[in-house]
Amino acid sequence: MSETTVRPATESPARPGATSKVSIVMFSGTADKFIPLGVFTQAAAALGMQVLVFVTGFALRGFTKEHHDLPFPAEFAGAAPDLERGMRAANVASWDAMLRQARQMGARVYACSMMSEVMGLGRGDYGDLVDDVVGAATFLEEAEGGETLFI
């Protein structure tokens, strides 16, 4: 372990104790992008931030009761086994375990109503990670004034 030098926290622009929020649009359905979804959701919840995830597009396949093996993007498929080995070696939690932890700390997850209908998915088709099925307006209204990430 090497020594690291970091700037003192007093230089941080963060306002101590300020309530802030981060909202994430989870659009990609590939396995690699579910890793940052889990990490940022859990980290934001740990910082005491209000966290909201809006799942749409092929990402919805990761949230159904029916299991779907999430594919890696074709250009990285060859490197996927090494990545998975590295993740195990570094003891990185699975994306869904991270999201579950974040939800226990207050994060909420919405599934997109329009894409759910397009994909033939009803509320009962989603597993325990989904809090509600809502439209874009609900998400945008709740996300207003905070940081928004698109994955």
Binding site: M1, T4, V6, A9, S12, A14, P16, G48
Partner: peptide, 20 residues
């Protein structure tokens, strides 16, 4: 043992108003 722990803890403290 995570190598990001020092800066992350300082960020957490700044965000939540606690002291390292």
């Amino acid at each position: 043992t995570d190598p990001g722990v020092e800066p992350d803890t300082r960020a957490w403290a700044a965000k939540t108003g606690n002291r390292v």
